[in-house]
């Protein structure tokens, strides 16, 4: 019976699809995998470059990072300066103070620029910690299975048993003590469960994937399958989720600091600026809360755009 081929997406006749399996020259498995994964990443880059929103997001994010790095150097005032007049409510935006001043005479623009690196650092490092722990635990759980998997996943269940904010706040209040490093550790240690679950799920589904079966069939070892075949393929969705987690960590840091449970009030962070602003709400000094909040919102929007582009680029099947 003639069946030209079964895969709709590959318009290649049967003769071309399986040459090496019959009598063709044997290709070393590694060469093929390397070529294929290179193509996969190149394709992802190509798809990402075509995603207009993602590019805008990336440009915005780069700009924010730039501000975080060189902003404090070129800013007209230091965070400890008191360039404005000290009076109730502060001053609105003006030529000398484009984002106004607070009631202590501090420049809001200086606060926003100096807060950038703290917010970005907390968001980035907390996510990296969560990512590393999550990928390790998820891989172990997915590759080992059985009792190990069961125990690790029950541990993850525990972190999901209450809304995470509750635990994070407890940890921040009792352990944070106003330290940025402590806050990063708390966010990272409490949030890896999400990523571990995702990595594990990827492992379970990839374990049954055709290319893994094929690798197993030609005698590739378990370790090699795990690290060369499954993990690289599982990373796509993980990177997407980590991007979104970074955005949410930036908001979280701001909120925790806003409640005065986060980074010491003396540090110029966006959350602390908002916290000060809240005390003065009602005096009509909107600029005080508006600009630090906008800074958070723009950072988060830019990261979410990038995340969306990565999602489309790394997981084309899920594209809608």
């Amino acid at each position: 019976m003639f069946k030209p081929e079964s895969a709709d997406s590959l318009p290649i006749p049967a003769s071309a699809a399986t040459p090496s399996l019959i009598d063709g020259p044997e290709l070393p498995v590694d060469v093929e995998v390397a070529l294929e994964s290179l193509n996969q990443w190149q394709l992802a880059v190509k798809r990402f470059m075509r995603h207009r929103m993602a590019l805008i997001g990336l440009a915005m994010f780069c700009f924010i990072v730039l501000v975080a790095i060189i902003g404090p150097i070129v800013a007209p005032y230091n965070p400890i300066d008191i360039p404005g007049a000290i009076h109730q409510g502060g001053d609105g935006p003006s030529f000398t103070h484009p984002m106004g001043t607070d009631d202590a005479g501090r420049d809001v623009y200086t606060m926003v620029v100096n807060g950038a690196h703290i917010s970005l650092a907390v968001g980035f490092f907390a996510t990296v910690i969560a990512g590393i722990i999550g990928i390790i635990v998820g891989s172990i759980s997915g590759a080992a299975g059985g009792v190990v998997d069961n125990l690790l996943m029950r541990l993850v269940d525990v972190t999901f048993a209450v809304p995470l904010l509750f635990l994070i706040l407890v940890a921040a209040v009792f352990f944070g003590q106003g330290s940025m490093v402590a806050l990063i550790l708390i966010f990272g240690i409490l949030q890896w469960g999400l990523i571990a679950r995702l990595v594990r799920a990827q492992f379970l589904s990839l374990r049954e994937a055709d290319f893994v079966e094929a690798a197993r069939a030609v005698g590739v070892g378990t370790m090699r399958i795990t690290f060369r075949h499954i993990l690289p393929n599982a990373l796509g969705p993980v990177i997407v989720v980590m991007t979104l987690l970074m955005a949410s960590n930036i908001v979280l840091e701001a909120f925790v600091s806003f409640l005065n449970f986060g980074i010491a009030a003396t540090e110029p962070t966006w959350g602390n600026a908002l916290s000060n602003a809240q005390n003065a709400m009602g005096d009509g000094n909107w600029w005080w809360a508006f600009f630090p909040g906008m800074a958070i919102a723009l950072t988060v929007i830019s990261i979410n755009f990038v995340g969306d582009g990565l999602h489309d680029a790394l997981d084309p099947r899920a594209r809608l």
């Binding site: 019976m1 003639f2 290649i12 006749p13 003769s15």
Partner: peptide
Amino acid sequence: ASIPSTVPRGQRLNVIKGTV
């Protein structure tokens, strides 16, 4: 020509060369 039953036993199947 590429239907197996039309090809004598032991002979390789004819395939249409190239791709769509």
